[in-house]
Design a protein around this nucleic acid. Structure first.
Lengths: 199, 199
DNA sequence: ACCTGAACACCGTTCAAGT
DNA sequence: ACCTGAACACCGTTCAAGT
């Protein structure tokens, strides 16, 4: 049976979830697909592009989040930030993968445009909404990356197993509170900018 | 003449500045020091630790920034953020290098503690100051990484050379304004938190 | 104490040749 | 159109042996 591009991306996502970004190599992926390494280059132009495609898959989950219709415009921003965090946490090393693809500009999913859209609804000017979207993205990516790497160091070290008895299905309550604190800082900043706009 | 640990870190920083992070390999560094690759492992335990040491050097420039004594406590936070950005921009791929070392926890320089210190002075509780410091670090690292990678793509592509006639010595005015916008969002968030605290 | 030589176990990418 | 085989030009790290 012939390999399709989607099979390559599927395989990459599976290796990512099972073994992490460090083990996601072209040779290993080829092996898991039962194909020679060179065969992958018929379907993707290089590793960076492949990781970009993987990021698009990770981000596709964002589209499931209710698009709009929230009464409070600032609350829509909050929900969107949480939607991104959840999408990143759903895959091993998801935050690192998406952050690197975003900086390499190999992502086609319009995450940034979505954030800009939500921020425009708050009353920010187009330029300001763009800059605010960037700032929010930096925060969500950084915070989630950090949270995720802590989680993995923890499960690797298995340290203080009793202190960290977890039955929350992957969502750390402390981590969520920390995330919300930084997010609220950002939202307050936007609010104060919008307020001075309407005076 | 015998190699010292500092020579290894010096050499690494030189390769970083001249050729970038992608070309900073143990074998290349060994070559530039006139030594066999294995020799490096007598001085540093591995590549991650070396990059951590390089990050410490990059961050050492922060100590030159006036420690305190600013009348406005929020302005001290702003200055510290700019100090970090400047330190990162002073070396090729500086933001990426420090961000990765910070997430790998191979940095010994107390950047975070410095930020926490400044934020405590604003009236934030110890917990909140810690979380705010993290959020600010995520922002500065993300924004500066992005700015720096744009700069390098630009100089590589040499696109629109007339539009980007630059005589500002590496400091893009637009980039600084963008950085300040996000920073102000954050500072406003802190301000609103301190205000509700004092009511 | 500090370094070399040589190896081990890998990488990403290219490309003529096959089907 | 899609893939193999084989190569090219690299990696980080280890470690016995040398000085």
């Amino acid at each position: 049976m012939q390999l399709r591009r989607d099979d390559v991306v599927d395989g990459a996502l599976t290796i990512l979830d099972d073994y992490g970004l460090a083990d996601l190599t072209m040779r290993r992926l080829a092996g898991s697909l039962g194909v020679a390494p060179g065969a992958l280059y018929w379907h993707v132009s290089n590793k960076q592009a492949l990781i970009g495609a993987v990021s698009d898959r990770i981000l596709s989950r964002l589209d499931t989040v209710p698009a709009a219709g929230t009464p409070d415009v600032l609350d829509a921003v909050r929900r969107r930030a949480h939607g991104l965090r959840d999408a990143l946490l759903a895959h091993r090393d998801g935050a690192e993968v998406v952050a690197s693809s975003l900086s390499a500009r190999t992502v086609t999913h319009p995450v940034r445009a979505t954030f800009v859209h939500d921020l425009l609804a708050t009353g920010l000017s187009p330029d300001d909404a763009g800059h605010a979207a960037d700032a929010l993205l930096y925060y969500v990516l950084g915070a989630t990356s950090d949270e995720q790497s802590r989680l993995q160091m923890e499960s690797a070290g298995a340290l203080a197993a009793d202190l960290h008895a977890r039955d929350d299905g992957g969502l750390d309550r402390d981590a969520t509170a920390r995330f919300d604190f930084g997010l609220e800082l950002f939202v307050d900043g936007v609010r104060s900018r919008v307020r001075t706009l309407n005076e």
